[in-house]
Design a protein around this nucleic acid. Structure first.
Lengths: 196, 196
DNA sequence: TAGGCTTGCTAACGCTCGTTAGCAAAAAAA
DNA sequence: TTTTTTTGCTAACGAGCGTTAGCAAGCCTA
């Protein structure tokens, strides 16, 4: 039995470090030698654990996509409640995934462009399907008279937009817990800023 | 008098083409040879018009920063009106700058990280100062009882966040004019989605 | 017409990139 | 114990990078 068993496998450690570097500098501006140094290996040694640089990006992007879909499904399957409530839960679920791993979220949101085909197209398709889920909720809510907006598709788009800038400013060590951030965001987006 | 005088100077053409490439692929993933090809020159010839690759990025980032400051100032100097109205105008002004040149906006929002010091720090300082302008508006509006939010700083942050995702989805040839987009966004963010 | 700036070319510089081959030690499996 | 797998190293590959030097042709000014 090894005395100091690694908490994470080397592969997971490489993925995590790469994610942090991709976030800070971008995929293209991060070299395998840089990654190796951060992990404590030589450049060539990385390839004992990882097939290529892009494979890491692929895993991060599609891994997070799964997280988003799972969270959305869990938040919206309860059909008993009003649509607005389910939308609120979907918002909070989205924020929770974002805050859970800010680095991975940033990579998911910005670095997927560096995937080569066909992964890139596959990713965009997933992304569109996820957005369609939000759009459907807003549409149902509007139809049911629970929400008011001139254009549900537009509203859904800008709603997600509001959430997806979060990784650029959110700090895990800030004074608000992830759940508080999620709640306030949902409150502000659904209720608006105007006093009424 | 030359028959086919260029509409833009070569330098402006290079800046514009580079901006489009930086937007589509990122600064680091765009090579000077690629840029030269897109402009119709050889790689070395670019340096007759441009000092370095980073100089282009610098011009784009700081140029747009000026645009944002100018638009914000013009939108908020009229002290006669209520704060909420001035905030609405600031939002619409921000959106107008974003939509005016989506490519440059995207570079401004994402690629500034590739500036080297001291330009990078200088840029971040400008960005912070701009955000502080919005924060002050929201704070004044809340103090005046025109806006209701638990945390003005948080609200200002997420307000700008909502706007800054726009370049990722906005299409100039879409069915909404820039002014309509600006108006709807302001409406939705200030009024919220909930029917009330 | 002469001089100097502007614009663009070709060729090359030193450097870094992602990745691979070949080998050695350690760890796990038999 | 022997064998196999895992992990890591060094060295190097071909390619692409940003940038520069040196030169030629075209243009404006005098």
């Amino acid at each position: 039995m090894s005395v100091a068993a690694p908490l994470r496998s080397r592969k997971a450690q490489i993925d995590g470090t790469a994610t942090a570097l991709f976030r800070a500098q971008g995929f293209a501006a991060t070299s395998m030698r840089e990654l190796a140094l951060a992990v404590g290996l030589e450049a060539g040694s990385l390839y004992s654990h990882v097939r290529s640089k892009e494979e890491i990006l692929h895993r991060v992007c599609f891994g997070l996509a799964e997280d988003f879909f799972a969270a959305f499904a869990a938040a919206t399957t309860d059909d008993g409640q009003p649509v607005a409530q389910r939308l609120r839960q979907a918002i909070e679920a989205h924020v929770r995934v974002l805050t859970q791993d800010v680095a991975a979220s940033t990579v998911f949101l910005h670095e997927w462009r560096h995937l080569s085909e066909p992964a890139r197209t596959e990713f965009v398709t997933l992304r569109d399907r996820y957005e369609a889920g939000f759009r459907a909720l807003v549409q149902q809510g509007t139809a049911a008279g629970e929400l008011h907006c001139p254009d549900p598709a537009f509203a859904a788009l800008t709603l997600l937009a509001s959430l997806n800038w979060l990784p650029t400013w959110y700090r895990p060590d800030g004074k608000l817990t992830p759940d508080e951030v999620a709640h306030r965001l949902a409150e502000q987006l659904l209720g608006g800023l105007l006093f009424q």
